[in-house]
């Protein structure tokens, strides 16, 4: 049976994740309320504005429902999604992140929009061609990696893709390019 991947659709570039999942023939659905999770086998938290995400998750009850869902499902967060999943936001934030992957982030760590960029990163998970074009938009940096968190992708010396048991997180936007290998890894290798 094909697994259905939910994409958090409160705000942000969720449509790009849905398109990426379509490209790899993976069934998907939008998640806007806690009950939407019932028909999902995994959840993607997209790019967008992390403060807005956390605000809306609190208002909709998803701030409790997603950690509950994470106890026995796979999650994948990109950019703002990574911030929401982190254990700690450097400098603090009005909202507490969900703490589902053991790492600390610094928001807008590369600067403002004029400092956004697209560059090749290295992902050893793909031995045949580890180069991956990664788009960083007002991107966060992972400033501390917990002991149980495995680094999977590197921009220069910095970790930009990481995983602990069932949570995958990227500081960049694999959904903005047509290279679907990370989505494919999430769907085929992790969810299985």
């Amino acid at each position: 049976m094909a697994r259905t991947v939910g994409v958090l659709g409160l705000q942000g570039d969720f449509a790009r994740h849905l398109a990426a999942l379509r490209r790899i023939h993976c069934p998907s659905r939008l998640v806007r309320r806690p009950e939407d999770l019932k028909t999902c086998d995994a959840l993607i938290l997209p790019g967008g504005e992390s403060t807005t995400f956390m605000n809306l998750m609190e208002r909709t009850g998803l701030a409790e429902a997603v950690p509950e869902f994470a106890r026995n499902h796979f999650l994948f967060g990109t950019c703002a999604g990574l911030i929401v999943l982190a254990t700690e936001i450097e400098g603090g934030c009005r909202f507490r992140p969900l703490g589902l992957i053991d790492l600390a982030v610094r928001r807008n760590a590369y600067g403002r929009q004029v400092d956004s960029f697209s560059e090749r990163i290295r992902i050893p998970l793909f031995p045949e061609n580890p180069a991956f074009e990664a788009v960083f938009i007002r991107a966060p940096k992972i400033v501390r990696l917990g002991g149980s968190t495995e680094p999977l992708g590197f921009h220069r010396d910095e970790v930009v893709l990481a995983r602990n048991a069932n949570v995958l997180a990227a500081a960049f936007h694999p959904e903005l390019t047509r290279d679907s290998r990370i989505h494919d890894y999430f769907v085929r290798q992790l969810i299985g």
Binding site: Q11, G12, D13, F14, G47, E49, T52, N55, R138, L176
Partner: peptide, 28 residues
């Protein structure tokens, strides 16, 4: 890409920092 990140959201006009804070807290 940044325009994509702003989808499904509200962009609010503000004339000072105090209004900007109200907008951010409201989920802009």
């Amino acid at each position: 890409g940044l325009a994509e990140m702003l989808k499904g959201g509200v962009i609010m006009d503000v004339t000072n920092a105090e209004q900007a804070k109200i907008a951010e807290d409201a989920g802009a």
